[in-house]
Amino acid sequence: MLSILRKARLKDKEMRVLMLGLDNAGKTTIVKQIMQEDVNTVSPTLGFIIKTIEYQGYKLNIWDVGGQKTLRSYWRNYFEKTDALIWVVDATDRFRLEDCREELHGLLLEERLMGASLLVFANKTDVKGCMSTEEIKEGLKLDEIVTHKWTILRCSAMTGENLIEGLDWVVTDAKERLFLY
């Protein structure tokens, strides 16, 4: 059933991308930067925002769901039919790295996210003193993830660094996987 749905959506060249992460990770700013909108006046997200980005002829429906604690219990409402999960990490926030790991690994147990690949965006890497990729990998125990295909990319929502590269990974990976059916 799932595969039929997938196929239908791929014919339309549509993909559903779920973007999650703790509050203050920079999820909305990433989307705004990709859309080339003003990134200086982004307010914390109350609820969720859906944006459609055209990339390589694909329509990426990006679901950007707020990361405040009160909203995290609602994340599950957005799992269905997710082709890719983008997990955004605030690379300047050492304090909450453990929280961040727990939330991420909790998500990876979700059955409805099983088929999705995982892109970890280490955001705010334009800030001096941010964590290294290795530090984040270790802190989030990414090497222990075997249930999902994953990768980690350093990026900056403020400068736009690596954002397109991230989309590229998502699309390339989804093409490889979804065309198998």
């Binding site: 200086n40 307010s43 604690k69 009160t70």
Partner: peptide, 9 residues
């Protein structure tokens, strides 16, 4: 603050 401030708990 240049955006909407938020409080939680």
């Amino acid at each position: 603050c240049r955006s909407r401030p938020i409080i939680e708990h």
